[in-house]
Design a protein around this nucleic acid. Structure first.
Lengths: 205, 205
DNA sequence: GTCTATATAGCGATAGAC
DNA sequence: GTCTATCGCTATATAGAC
């Protein structure tokens, strides 16, 4: 008698999950397009094709919408890290990840949040999925950074945390969009250019 | 008979200028603290100590307030460029300027604007003082960049415009505030750290 | 859970007296 | 030019029917 119920529940949950996935995709795109402050909940609802009040049944606030999008992004990052070839050197692993984040940014799929909004920060830090993902990603990148420094591939005199921040910052680097606006280079050229300035620096070698 | 009038006019203009300077200082600080969207005109008026309606007698919109602050920043930048020792190499001149911008940022004096807001962009581009300052600063930095590349100090294979954007981006680099929040380094150490990653890159040399 | 309709509040901008 | 008071709009969030 309880052989059917799990299926019905699972189906309902699948519908719920699909709806929430659609919401998160819309939020992700709008966050990438206009940023958190300029994104309105009405736009999100319109893009998903549901009423605004329905949105609030899924997520209790605009901040939680953004946090869910960031948690989703962390999940994507974790999945990408799993695909990075083990055979690569730690340095090349890091370069691969940074290439991926810059590709997302140039493709308009990288949500951007203001680092100054305090209520948003509180919601983010209260989101377990996001925080767990962030810690996992940071740990794995941190391991590669330390390995690359031990090999002498990355400057060992730089604090590992500074290297990590520098790599994260490439995901929201305004140089990417400025170069894209100039329309002088393809996305791939822009990525290799910024990757070069990031790892090799501006100075001649 | 016209020996007094100019003085009275000049005095009035001085008062006006002083008032507008106070406004711009307030806008600059609030823009650095909270960004354009989070800054409210009421806060600006309160900080200056005048009524909001009085603000609108000086500047016709919130966007114009921000543009005036950016124009003031460009004036500061031009003044700083004048103080850079001629004896320095082009590379060291650039490093000096970037150090200065990062010091402003860490000191909470670097106004930050969203690069996506279209009406703000329009107001900025319609502000002659800002645009003229930006062009002048960019020209002078561009000259130093090309000289440094000709000397082989800066990688000649990088487009000069990409180098310019990369230097500008240090003024709003989130790595600065993240390192400051970690409270592991002094402002000077942070500046030298980011300066090193910018010019020397992450890779070991 | 989804909808329509509405409450509530904050903000940019203005009216009008002085 | 400065003030007080207010308009008009937009945006987050909610009430209540279905």
């Amino acid at each position: 008698m309880n052989t059917v119920a799990p299926v019905k529940i699972s189906f309902k949950q699948q519908m719920l999950q699909a709806r929430e996935d659609a919401i998160i995709r819309a939020v992700n795109q709008l966050l990438a397009e206009k940023g958190f402050e300029a994104m309105t909940v009405d736009e999100v609802a319109a893009q998903v094709g549901i009423a605004k009040a329905s949105l609030y049944k899924h997520f209790p606030s605009k901040e939680d919408l953004a946090a869910a999008a960031m948690a989703h992004l962390m999940g994507q990052a974790q999945a990408f890290l799993d695909t990075v070839p083990l055979a690569l050197s730690p340095l090349d692993k890091l370069r691969t990840v940074v290439r991926w984040t810059m590709g997302l940014k140039l493709g308009g799929e990288m949500p951007s949040l203001p680092s100054q909004n305090s209520t948003l920060r509180a919601t983010l830090m209260g989101n377990r999925a996001y925080m767990d993902g962030l810690v996992d990603v940071s740990d794995r990148l941190g391991g590669w950074i330390e390995a690359a420094q031990a090999q002498g591939a990355i400057n060992p005199r730089l604090p590992a945390i500074a290297v990590l921040y520098t790599l994260y910052a490439r995901a929201c680097d305004p140089v990417l969009e400025f170069l894209k606006m100039s329309e002088l280079h393809t996305d791939e050229e822009i990525i290799e250019l910024v990757l070069s300035t990031c790892f090799d620096g501006l100075n001649a070698r």
